[in-house]
Simulated scan of single mutants.
Amino acid sequence: MDTPVRTEIDPAAGVATVVLGRPDQRNPLSVNMMRGVTAALRTFADDESVRVVVIAADGPAFSAGHDLSEMIDRDIEDERVIFEVCTEMMDTVQEIPQPVIAAVQGPAIAAGCQLAASCDLVVASSNAVFGTPGVRIGLFCSTPMVALSRSVGRKRAMQMLLTGETIDAATAAEWGLVNIVAPPYQLDARVHELAARIAEASPLTLAIGKQAFYRQIDLPQDEAYELMTETMATNAVTFDAQEGMSAFLEKRKPLWKGK
C-alpha cells in the first residue's frame, strides 16, 4: 500500500509541501494519515532550509474528514485515540516555526475543514467548498468547531455547524476562513507566490511572529500588550532585526542569519 502522505521540497524557494495522498478515498484523515502529516511537519520544523510549509492534497478533494470506517464498533478509548491524534496534528501545524499554507483545491469537509482552518493561511481554488456536516450523521463536528470558530466567528461557525451546509470559497474568504481565492489553474502559482513572498523574511523573525500571534490572540488586551512588549523587545536585539533595520536605513537588501 502506498504511503498516505508524501513530502516534496523546493530547496531553491525554501518551500516544503506535505501532500495528502489518498485521492481515491477523498483523502480521509485516518490515524495513519494524521500521524504521517504530524511526522512530516516535525521533520520540516528542524530543517533550517525550509522557510514555508504547504499542506496540499492529491485528487479532486482536499479532505473529506475523518475516516469513518475507523470509528465504527470501537470503544471510547479507541475513539479518544483518533481525536487525540487529530488534535496533535492540528497543534503541530501551529507549533512549528514555519508559516503553514493550506492549498485547498477541492472540498474541505469536517476535519478537512478543521485542517485548513488550523493553517496560518489558506489559498483556495474557486471550486473549493468548506463544511462541517457531522450534525447530519449524528456526530457533531466538535473538534473542527475549535479551529472554525477561531477563524469565522461565533454566528457563522454556528450556522455551518448546526446546518451542516457547505460554503463556497468566495464566502469562506468573506467570512475570514480563506485568504486568497484563485481559479483552479492558478492555485499552485498563487500558493507559491505567497510562499515566496513570506520566505523573503528572516526565518527567525517569522518564527517569533508566528509563536507570538498564537500566544496573544485570546488574551485580554492588557495582557497581550504586556506579553508582546517583551516579545518585541527581545526580537529587536536579535541579529536579524538589527540587520533588517540597518539595511532599511542604508537602502540595501538585508542578509539574514537566522539568529
Rank of each mutant, 00 (worst) to 15 (best):
T92G: 05
S69N: 14
E77Q: 03
S69C: 03
A110I: 01
D120A: 09
D73K: 07
V93Y: 12
I82L: 11
G106I: 05
A116V: 03
M89Q: 12
V100N: 04
I76L: 03
D120W: 10
V85H: 02
V85F: 05
V81W: 01
I72C: 01
I82R: 02
E79V: 03
V100I: 12
P107I: 04
E84I: 12
V85M: 06
A108Q: 01
C113Q: 13
V93E: 08
R74Q: 02
L68Y: 00
V100Y: 07
E70P: 01
E95A: 15
Q94D: 00
E88P: 04
C113V: 08
A117Y: 15
A111W: 08
S69Y: 00
G112R: 13
Q98K: 04
P99W: 10
I109R: 14
D91Y: 04
A111T: 00
D120G: 10
C86T: 14
D75P: 04
S118K: 00
I101V: 11
Q105N: 15
D67F: 02
Q94G: 10
E79S: 03
I72Q: 12
T92A: 06
V104N: 11
A117K: 13
P97M: 11
A102H: 15
C86Q: 14
V85T: 05
I82Q: 08
A116T: 06
T92W: 07
P99I: 13
C113D: 05
V104L: 09
R74F: 01
